[in-house]
Simulated scan of single mutants.
Amino acid sequence: MVDYPGPFVWYELITTDMAAAKAFYSEVVGWGVQDASTPGLSYALFTAGTAPVIGLMELPEEARNRGATPRWAGYVGVADIDATAERIKRLGGAVYVPPTDTNIGRISIVADPQTAAFALVEGLKPALRQTVAMGEPGHVGWHELLAANWETAFEFYGELFGWQKAAAETGSAGTYQSFSAGEQTIGAMVTKRPMQPVPAWLYYINVGDIDAAAERVKAAGGHIFEGPLELSEGGSILRCADPQGATFALQGKRSQDGVGWSAEWGGFSSRGKLVNRSRGTA
């Protein structure tokens, strides 16, 4: 029995340098910053306009000692977090942090059977609830699972959350399978390339001009792994890491004509169909 078709409802950046992260993402994405600390917890909110969109906190010392590194966390909203955490364990996943009351709601940090980590939240604070469409600037607009095996990963998430298959695209390296929560397509799953060390979720943040954003990433000390890569529906993407090493992605429109990359990204067309437009005239 599934909880309900749960969407992602909140996101956090867990980092080793909050001040540096505030400066980097404010420059790259244009977010504002609000302090939301509580006694014993340093916490901040990235905002798009006046709306909070991302939480920011320090990576706990205990986690650092265990080898944890800066990362993004996406929270799936559930109605009964204790039952969902138990179901994750029965389905072969892991519960790293058991259901716990926090400043944002009752949360749990978990992983699927292929070790891709994500989070659960029950009773997300009303002030943090996302009230705009996924395509709005400054918001997370796509959720991509780089799995050890996308088919078995989908079985897990489908059983857990009731997610459904949407459109699929097949390339030389396999299938890029979109999925929906309720009636909205919110992301995709794909079998990761060998160069990617571990299964992980990747979150795409909406920006306006992807070329300008790429320049801001580099100028602010971040690293671009791949892109800009153009999609057939007109958008483009970047895969990046911030100066502390947390991996994220950006999606937006191109200001420059042409891509200069192959039509497939590592054998599959991540984040939709890629096109390869030549520069100048044909």
Rank of each mutant, 00 (worst) to 15 (best):
T175Q: 03
Q177L: 10
E151T: 15
L145N: 00
E169L: 11
E215W: 14
A219L: 02
A181F: 08
Y157K: 04
F179M: 00
G162F: 02
F154L: 10
V198R: 09
N149M: 11
R216H: 03
S178Q: 15
W201L: 10
T185V: 07
A153E: 01
G174M: 10
V132K: 08
L128P: 09
Q177H: 01
K125L: 11
A200K: 15
H139I: 04
I205P: 12
Q164D: 15
A214S: 12
A188V: 01
Q184G: 08
P137H: 05
A119K: 12
A212M: 05
N149S: 11
P197Q: 02
W163H: 08
G174L: 11
T131P: 11
T170L: 03
G158M: 11
L124A: 06
E159F: 03
D211T: 02
E144L: 15
M134N: 11
V140K: 05
A173E: 10
A167M: 08
G171L: 07
N149I: 10
G141P: 05
E159C: 14
T131N: 07
D209I: 03
Y204K: 12
S180H: 05
E122Y: 08
A147N: 00
G174P: 13
K218Q: 13
M134Y: 06
W163S: 09
V198T: 06
T152A: 04
G182Q: 05
G158K: 08
A213I: 03
P137R: 01
H139Q: 08
G171E: 04
T191S: 09
G123T: 00
P126Q: 04
A127S: 03
P199D: 03
A127I: 06
G158F: 01
L146P: 03
Y204H: 13
L146M: 12
A153Y: 07
K165A: 09
